[in-house]
Amino acid sequence: MSMTLPHLTDAESFRAFRYDSSRWLPIALDIARSHGFDADAPHVFATGTNLVVGLGDTLILKIFPPLLRAQFVSERGSLTQLNGRLHLPIPEIAAEGMRDGWPYLIITRLAGTLGSEVWPHLPEDQKERLLRQIGETIAAVQRAPLGALGRIEPRWDDFMRRQMQGCRARHTRLGLAPKFLSGLDDLLRDAEQLIPMDAPPVILIGEYIPENFLLACDDGQWSLAGLFDFGDVLAGWRDYDLLGPSAFMAAGRPGRVKNLLEGFGHPKPDYALKRRLMALMLLHRASDLNSHICIEGWQEQAEDLVELQELIWPG
């Protein structure tokens, strides 16, 4: 078997390669051993974007294909910049390098239970409590200095303008109902005034969702215990990072929304804030309202985008 990582030119060929771990796991283990780490009990993570393998209980190896080098730059830069600056544990870099043009990181493995395993079963008061902690964590990350992340591409103004240009085509392709598409031009026109393009940027993780954080339970109370996956970091306007928890977790519940926004530092949401968040939700790089808004029957409860923003961010 070849111990060389291949030259892959497109995402489809990489996905096929990633799914067949027999083609790359021996190379991953060789990388781990080259740094002196134990590779006798590997665990391949089937989900995720890159090649990811657990090395026992304490380390994780992430190998990035050259076509996703930007994710390596983002992850490495974020872990370096945020190290020691948060109250919440994040992975630390134990080793890094390059193999056949594929950059990799060996990072510490955090303790805790994956948020997506716990969140659906929590009582409402604990969901509100966790959303307040998430809001506080977003604010803490954004207080950290940008450092080298200030040079990460794309720049916020370029990113937003590109998203605006492709917004209608994207949501038409994804099957957004005509009654919402009809208000898109008005919303995008408002967005140019509501979304700051040249304000001082902050670190944006982009995906504060249950799959990307760990929880721990103490005397029946669940709390945030760790944050990971920094492959899609941007530098830009702060409200962008409220979209993940708004879509995937708050579910339009007034108590959840209130705790998220108060934890973040926003007062009671006014029309302008709701309008800006609605615009940002449609402009998010992963935006797909039909798949991501976790309010049951929201398509029938709202007749246009204005009613939808009131449904998602009540109060």
Rank of each mutant, 00 (worst) to 15 (best):
T49I: 11
T49M: 01
L61E: 13
A46T: 15
L59Q: 15
L79W: 06
T80P: 00
E92Q: 13
A46P: 05
L86P: 00
E75G: 01
A95C: 09
D57P: 09
I60R: 03
N83R: 15
N50G: 03
G54Y: 12
N83V: 15
L82D: 06
F64Y: 14
G77K: 02
P42E: 01
F72M: 05
L68H: 14
V52N: 02
A94N: 04
V52K: 00
A95K: 06
M98R: 04
L51Y: 06
V44K: 02
I93Y: 01
M98K: 00
P89I: 10
L68A: 11
H43M: 09
P66Q: 09
V53A: 13
V53G: 01
K62R: 15
A94K: 04
R76E: 15
T58K: 14
I60N: 02
H43E: 13
G97F: 02
M98T: 07
L61C: 14
R69N: 11
F45G: 00
A95W: 00
L82G: 02
V52D: 00
L67F: 14
S78Q: 06
V73K: 08
P65I: 06
Q81R: 11
A46D: 05
A94F: 10
L82I: 08
F64A: 00
V44T: 11
R85Y: 00
G48Q: 02
G97I: 10
N50M: 05
